[in-house]
Amino acid sequence: MLTKRIIPCLDVIKRRVTKGVKFQNNVDLGDPIEMAVRYSNEGCDELVVYDITASSERRPIDIEMVREVAQAIRIPFSVGGGIATLEDMSRVLLAGAEKISVNSLAVKNPAIIAEGARAFGAQCIVLGMDPVATADRQRCPSGYEITTRGFRERTGIDAVEWARQAEQHGAGEIVVNSVDADGTRAGFELTITRLIAEAVRIPVVASGGAGCAAHLREAFELAHADAAIVAGMLHTGDFTIRQIKQELHAEGVPVRMIW
């Protein structure tokens, strides 16, 4: 049986992993390479590494860091931040990443999804999206609006409609990172995760709000997520991947237990 993937997320600023709430008040958590190795050894199924200031600083991604992560771990990882062109994608893949995550720049230029899928295969193009709940049902019938630039900008784009478009463009996977749940550790935003899982046929990854193993189970069983991103609950040391997986396994959720 295909197992549910548990994916730690490393938000990196200046070569240090940081964690904030809603992209603010970031605190230093450690070295990205060391953390990648630790989580990989503990049994995580994949990793996400975001160079979170590359885009706002209008610079290319820290490719040397990508190379070091690729040398250090033997599991798939995706990389995001500041990826605007096919050339950027190619550099990240050649450095050893498995997938490329596009977010704000794909909203500005959706063609990059199709171009990337054609050039490298749909399986390595991940669309990251940061939806926020909105009362404006006129513009956003699903009740969720896409934000960009680290939640700073509202776009007026309906989140479910954007997910459908991204799938048509050739995205291989969608990461649904709820602005409202991000950093709260109060559980994933199940409604928008489920709406998107129901709207597309590609894998959907729940993101934002994980605080305990039961939250992951909800995302898998109630929102039909294929994978879940965890950050704060691991980074603080409150949980290990092994603990989360043991609990999910005991509850009957298929997870990879041999590593």
């Binding site: 295909l2 197992t3 549910k4 749909a122 046929r201 294929d226």
Partner: peptide, 10 residues
Amino acid sequence: WDKVPQMGWN
């Protein structure tokens, strides 16, 4: 809910 591609650990 069986997605194509199969993506992940089996």
